[in-house]
């Protein structure tokens, strides 16, 4: 890999630099490296912890009300419970979010849409299931239209039971997620 792959320099200069050596090794190999190499170094070292510390303190969640828990999610994001204190800020589009909150029943008709939303979210991303319906179908477990096992479709890190859970429980769940991210124990292994 030459220098011209990284910064736009005339090829002549590139060829010239390629002849240079440092401690007997080509300069380009030592100075310029690929993203993959950087990632390998980050994975190995304690710098990953610094990354995760940053990630854990800015878990923006997708405002995605789907049921009763969605109404509690409004309240959780608004002034009385003020999720912003913990770095959990509600966002309106999946492209700006880190956390998907499944806040209610997942129906057969909504599942493809929901998968789409999940795929639109940039990495790194996490998923939380809130309420009985999202965990196991809840009171609608025998409905013809409800998906019971959301865990089969999404890598859910935190389950928050309740029907619907109180906003305080939302906070507890998000703090648990932050702890998981910090300890590098989340499902997608960031």
């Amino acid at each position: 890999m030459g220098i011209s792959d990284v910064i736009p320099v005339p090829v002549a200069i590139d060829e010239e630099i390629e002849k240079w050596t440092i401690f007997g090794r080509p300069v380009a190999e030592v100075w310029f490296t690929t993203t993959e190499k950087i990632h390998q170094i980050i994975e190995m070292g304690p710098i990953k912890n610094i990354f995760n510390w940053g990630r854990k303190n800015s878990v923006y969640f997708l405002m995605q009300p789907m049921g009763c828990c969605g109404v509690e999610m409004f309240v959780f994001g608004a002034a009385p419970y003020d999720s912003d204190r913990f770095g959990c800020i509600p966002r309106n589009t999946p492209r700006q979010t880190d956390v998907m909150i499944i806040s209610g029943y997942l129906t057969r008709k909504y599942l493809p849409v929901f998968k789409n939303l999940w795929e639109q979210m940039p990495e790194p991303k996490w998923c939380i299931a809130i309420g009985e319906c999202a965990i196991s179908g809840g009171p609608f477990y025998d409905s013809y239209n409800i998906i019971q096992n959301t865990g089969d479709y999404f890598p859910i890190d935190v389950f928050i039971p309740g029907c619907p859970p109180r906003p305080e429980q939302f906070l507890e769940g998000l703090i648990n997620l932050q702890e998981k991210i910090k300890q590098r124990k989340d499902k997608r292994d960031y």
Binding site: Y105, T107, S143
Partner: peptide, 14 residues
């Protein structure tokens, strides 16, 4: 619509 159709009327029969 029908994205959160739960079939409550049917469930209540059971």
């Amino acid at each position: 619509l029908g994205y959160i159709h739960k079939g409550i009327e049917k469930i209540m029969e059971n």
